[in-house]
Design a protein around this nucleic acid. Structure first.
Lengths: 237, 237
DNA sequence: TTGACATTCAAACACCTGTTTGAAATATAT
DNA sequence: ATATATTTCAAACAGGTGTTTGAATGTCAA
């Protein structure tokens, strides 16, 4: 078979088994600590299989990252249920929910989210790909929502910090899960608790956004004490 | 000299040099990826020095963690400038500032903060010690401040989530620094930017806290539909 | 069937990493 | 000064890890 790598319809599917096993092992231990022997064993393949199919361990990881990105993006869109007529608050809620799902979802999907998180903490050669494919689009989407929520004229630097405050809250649950579980033995984050977590993060963040917005407008009003301080016409989109 | 390990006044101070070098290397690469050969080289010591002075690599790490905790706790208290008469907001600001300093301070102090962060992400045998010595006291202090800010009768579960939202914002800057720097090439967090960051996190979080508090009281008031449902007078500042 | 190619496998290889060793050097006490 | 204890050092060791190898097996077309 001359082109197994592009044709997923081979009989045993060693390549796919390797990717699946690699997702499990790497999500658990991280790329560096993951052993190819473990991956191959879990995939029911020989130790040499990784090098045959992917060149080396990094090649396997690159292929895994690529597929993980595609899967997580398709499975948990950050604008689920959002239409042209959705309010900024609805868009924000959808964003928070989608992001938390990516991180906390159970099963195979969760693995991909955790791999992405690990890559953010301990970057490898795949970081550039990840930034382009996941981080930048996410960042742009959130920035767009925040523009609507904060209103025009809001300082860009402060808006960026706001975005980081929101992302920080969310990814914290992925990063510090070991400590959270240690501190709180009955700490569980299954699908049931997710919606309450979404509501908390959204409510807390919208409160923070409002406080920043109010403070900004108060400050602005003080600077132009002549007339009403109505912000300039909102920029569309 | 029979007890060098308890007497820091030996001539060459190989032990201290090892601790210092270990702090640098481990803060940069993490415990698992840090090589004892690198540590010894940077300390100007022989490869066997680690095993002679600390038994093994883990022993060195344990000693480092211990001293790192003591130093960071002493250097950046989370209640600096707080007195009996301080308002909850002032206490909160001091907490945020101290925590951010621990994480972002330049130089040697910064290393210790980053080591603590790494331990939270990829736990080792030192996690228990860290939880007892740093995480729990921090958590208790923040919870105490939040009790004041949220007022009595606020649901405990929601207060805990609020604490996580605040901690999440802060540690995010430590966890995701690689990505932040990749996204924003001129991303720098020196002592100058720190105060503006402190103000942002505090303002954003206090806004979130007030939103949660208002929502809770509104909900409570709805249960007693006798009076108007106006949130209580805005708290100072 | 035969030949060519793809895939699997056990074994070995090469390298890295924490650790040990035994001798040499240095310091301390009597 | 001598003896004893402490510390340093180069070298080697032991285990683990990613990778390669070359033969064996399987697959498919001619």
């Amino acid at each position: 078979m001359a082109e197994t790598k592009d044709n997923p319809t081979v009989q045993p599917g060693t390549r796919e088994a390797l990717l699946e096993a690699a997702a499990e092992v790497i999500a658990e231990a991280g790329f560096r600590s993951a052993r190819v022997r473990d991956i191959c064993e879990r995939a029911g393949a020989n130790v040499a299989a990784v090098n045959y199919h992917f060149g080396d361990k990094e090649g396997l990881y690159a292929a895994l990252i690529q597929s993980a990105f595609d899967q997580v993006i398709a499975r948990f869109p950050l604008d689920a249920g959002v239409t042209r007529s959705s309010t900024p608050e609805e868009r924000f809620l959808s964003f928070v929910r989608g992001y938390l799902q990516r991180i906390l979802a159970a099963g195979a999907q969760c693995r991909h989210g955790r791999i992405v998180m690990r890559e953010m903490i301990e970057p490898t050669s795949a970081l550039d790909l990840m930034v382009e494919k996941v981080v930048k689009p996410t960042s742009l989407l959130l920035d767009d929502i925040l523009r609507q929520l904060l209103g025009p004229g809001f300082p860009e630097a402060s808006r960026r910090q706001t975005a980081l405050s929101i992302i920080g809250q969310i990814v914290f649950y992925a990063h510090c899960r070991p400590v959270l579980e240690r501190m709180n033995p009955d700490f569980k984050l299954d699908q049931g608790d997710l919606e309450s977590l979404v509501n908390h993060v959204a409510q807390f963040s919208l409160g923070g956004i409002r406080a920043l917005k109010d403070a900004g407008q108060t400050r602005k009003r003080k600077r132009t004490p002549s007339g009403r301080s109505i912000p300039p016409a909102r920029r569309r989109k």
